[in-house]
């Protein structure tokens, strides 16, 4: 019974997501027709004159939204520190001569 209710809830979420995806077309901008593109047009026009960079994605990553990249590198550093801390004291198991 509990599993059935949870399954029905997941099906309702799936139906909601599908209906939203299909109804996105139109004035809201669906697949292939984004609307609010002023910021991206600005990046496309000016990244060559501002940064002298051909790859616009790199220009956004390291110049316009550089703080995002800094936070992301910090997250990676913190995750590696966490892995090092968790797995620090793992001693190898003695395998009794089988291998």
């Amino acid at each position: 019974m509990r599993k059935l209710v949870a399954f029905l809830a997941i099906m309702i979420i799936f139906a909601f997501l599908v209906i939203t995806a299909v109804e996105l077309r139109g004035d809201d901008g669906g697949f292939g027709e984004p609307v609010n593109t002023e910021m991206d047009e600005y990046f496309l026009e000016n990244s060559q004159s501002h940064n002298q960079v051909n790859n616009i994605v790199t220009a956004i990553l390291f110049d316009y939204r550089g703080l995002d990249t800094l936070g992301e590198a910090t997250v990676l550093f913190a995750a590696v520190s966490g892995v090092l801390t968790v797995l620090r004291k793992m001693k190898p198991v003695k395998r009794g001569g089988k291998r």
Binding site: I56, I60, L61, E72, A79, V80, G82, V86
Partner: peptide
């Protein structure tokens, strides 16, 4: 549009880091 691609790059690396932490 280039901004979504840049955000996806960030998202991929953060997802990798969190997955490695959960697996450990």
């Amino acid at each position: 549009l280039p901004t979504s691609h840049a955000l996806t790059l960030t998202s991929i690396v953060i997802g990798l880091a969190t997955t490695a932490l959960m697996l450990s």
